[in-house]
C-alpha cells in the first residue's frame, strides 16, 4: 500500500547515529507503506530504540534522511539542524508509546490525553475533552478518566498513553517495547488495543520482544543487530524460516510459538 503519490508513509534512508565513539546505527534504511505495520526485533543494544527515536527525531541522526508523510529532513555534512519549532511540528504528526508509559503524573488520565491537543494544537478545551473521552472509551478506560496515573495498573497506564498519543491524530504510531514493563497478565489488554489500531489501518512501527504478536500483527519484520539491518521480510516468512544465521540464533531463544525469551 502506498499513498496517492505512490510513496511510502515512512521512509528512512542511510541513517547513521553514534553516541560518542560508539556507532549505534550504521546505514539503516527502512520504508513503511501507509497502513503498514513493521516490527523491529533484535538483541538488547542493537539500536532498535535509537532507530525508532530517529523516526520522530527524539534522537537526531548524524546522517541520512527521515521522511514521515510530507515532512522530510536530511542530516549530515552541509545540512542545517532543524530548529526546535520545526522539530516540534514534525513530532506532532507522529505518536510515540514508551516502555515506561511516561504519563504525566500531575494530570488525570483525561488531562493526559487532552494535553497535546490543548497545548500543541490549541484546540478549545471542550473539543479536546470530547476527543479525549472518545479515545479513552476506545481503549476501554472511559470510567478511569478522572483517575491520576498513580491509581492505574500498568496495563491501564499504557492504554492511557496510547490514547494520549492518538489524541494528536498522528499519521504514524511508534511503539517502543510497549508491553515489556507489564506483568504478564496485563500484556494482553495492551496488545489487543495495538491489534485494533493495526486493523484500523494505522501505520505502525513496533519494537517488541513479543515474537508471536509480531508474527500475527506485523506485515513485515526487520531484524537489527549491531546497528545494521541483518534481515528483513514478510513477518511469517522471517519468523518461521529465517535465512540469516544471526536471525536464526536470535529467534532460537524464543519458544516455538514465541512468548518470553528463554534466557
Amino acid at each position: 500500500m502506498t499513498d496517492v503519490s505512490g510513496r511510502a508513509k515512512i521512509e528512512i534512508a542511510h541513517l547513521a547515529k553514534s553516541f560518542g565513539t560508539q556507532a549505534v546505527l550504521k546505514d539503516v534504511s527502512l520504508a513503511v507503506p501507509a497502513g503498514g505495520v513493521v516490527a523491529l526485533i533484535g538483541p538488547s543494544g542493537s539500536g532498535k530504540s535509537t532507530l525508532l527515536r530517529c523516526i520522530n527525531l527524539l534522537v537526531v541522526p548524524d546522517a541520512g534522511e527521515v521522511r514521515v508523510g510530507d515532512d522530510a529532513f536530511r542530516f549530515g555534512a552541509g545540512t542545517k539542524l532543524p530548529g526546535t519549532k520545526a522539530l516540534a511540528r514534525f513530532r506532532a504528526g507522529t505518536g510515540m508509546v514508551f516502555q515506561h508509559f511516561n504519563l504525566f503524573p500531575h494530570l488525570t488520565a483525561l488531562q493526559n490525553v487532552m494535553e497535546g491537543p490543548v497545548t500543541v494544537q490549541r484546540l478549545p478545551k471542550a473539543e479536546a475533552e470530547a476527543r479525549a473521552r472518545a479515545l479513552l472509551a476506545k481503549v476501554g478506560l472511559a470510567d478511569k478518566a478522572e483517575q491520576y496515573p498513580s491509581r492505574l495498573s500498568g496495563g491501564q497506564k499504557q492504554r492511557v498513553a496510547i490514547a494520549r498519543a492518538l489524541a494528536m491524530e498522528p499519521e504514524v504510531m511508534l511503539f517502543d517495547e510497549a508491553t515489556s514493563a507489564l506483568d504478564p497478565e496485563l500484556v494482553g489488554e495492551v496488545l489487543s488495543v495495538m491489534r485494533a489500531l493495526a486493523a484500523d489501518g494505522m501505520t505502525m512501527v513496533i519494537v517488541t520482544h513479543e515474537i508471536a504478536f509480531a508474527r500475527e500483527v506485523a506485515d513485515r519484520v526487520v531484524f537489527l543487530r549491531d546497528g545494521v539491518v541483518v534481515e528483513e521480510g514478510p513477518a511469517r516468512t522471517l519468523i518461521d524460516a529465517p535465512q540469516h544465521p544471526d536471525t536464526q540464533a536470535f529467534l532460537a531463544h524464543f519458544h516455538r510459538r514465541g512468548e518470553a525469551p528463554a534466557a
Partner: peptide
C-alpha cells in the same frame, strides 16, 4: 521525552 513526542 513524552512532551516532546507530543509535539511540544
Amino acid at each position: 521525552e513524552a512532551a516532546a513526542a507530543l509535539g511540544m
